[in-house]
Design a protein around this nucleic acid. Structure first.
Ligand code: FES
Ligand code: FES
Lengths: 146, 146
DNA sequence: AGAATTCTTATAAATTTATGTTGAAAAATA
DNA sequence: TATTTTTCAACATAAATTTATAAGAATTCT
């Protein structure tokens, strides 16, 4: 029930990859590498990273030796920011964020429910940072040194 | 961020409508009426109600004077059951419910996050009944007597 | 100049969303 | 019981969106 789009999923994994590489030397990473590691089409990654760039969560460096790099420290990037950039502001149903979307809000009983449920997610994602994700990854794969 | 499909939204509103009509005489309701009240295409409602019927949440009565009616008392139908019937068992990402869906669960850091977030929603919807929704609707529209 | 990499645009496949058309089953009625 | 009405059921189709891939241009480094 209720689906996170592939954009949101792949984009988050992309950000985790960038964060995992962030600690040593802060070198930029090329998408090709992430594409290989995460087994996601590079063409699709190119589309997905655009909104992340627009939201100033990643910086791009063009040309040879270029690539992508996080714009801030992973501990300073909230999961909510990532999903906001990738999926837009809509929470479960559009009317939660855009009161003009449905013209039935005044009568609609489900509105309150979707709104509450959206808040649960929002709060959870607000309190999860990219650093938390990196730590989970490290715990799951203690041997991997990227 | 993260979207509930129209199937889930309209289907839930459909169930609320049925619940609102359930109290008096338990008469069956024709889809046309719900279509008019909720401004949803009747053809689309016909598609949406099929999984609800399969899940035995509603019963259909054919022929003249027929229509649809809730299979159980609204206080005995959980929102989670409704969404499960409409959207399937997948919670945010498929791998949460189907461990074979992704073959990266062992390494994937985001898995735990989507799983926790899914649990938040699941618990909320598990503890919300159709009766709760009807009461919200009544509170919002005290004058309406259907 | 040449290689590496992002950036841009195009396009195709799959899925979701929504409507239309026709037919079959059940109940009411005469 | 035959007829008619009401309603669900099934199938087909079209538009919109999401998902994914392809090809080439632009930029930067060496
Ligand atoms: S779904 Fe938007 S107001 Fe009910
Ligand atoms: S999204 Fe399924 S394991 Fe990471």
């Amino acid at each position: 029930m209720i689906r996170l789009s592939t954009k949101g999923r792949y984009g988050t994994r992309l950000m985790v990859s960038l964060a995992q590489h962030y600690h040593n030397r802060r070198e930029s990473i090329i998408l090709k590498k992430i594409s290989d590691e995460e087994e996601i089409s590079i063409r699709y990654l190119e589309q997905i990273i655009i909104p992340l760039k627009i939201a100033r969560l990643v910086k791009s460096i063009r040309g040879a030796g270029g690539g992508y790099i996080l714009a801030r420290d992973p501990s300073n990037i909230k999961l909510r920011e990532i999903l906001l950039a990738l999926e837009g502001a809509c929470c479960l149903v559009e009317c939660v964020d855009d009161e003009d979307y449905c013209d039935r809000i005044k009568e609609c009983a489900t509105y309150e429910i979707w709104k509450n449920a959206s808040s649960l997610l929002k709060d959870y994602f607000e309190n999860t940072t990219l650093q938390d994700l990196v730590e989970i990854a490290d715990k799951k794969n203690p041997s991997v040194r990227k």
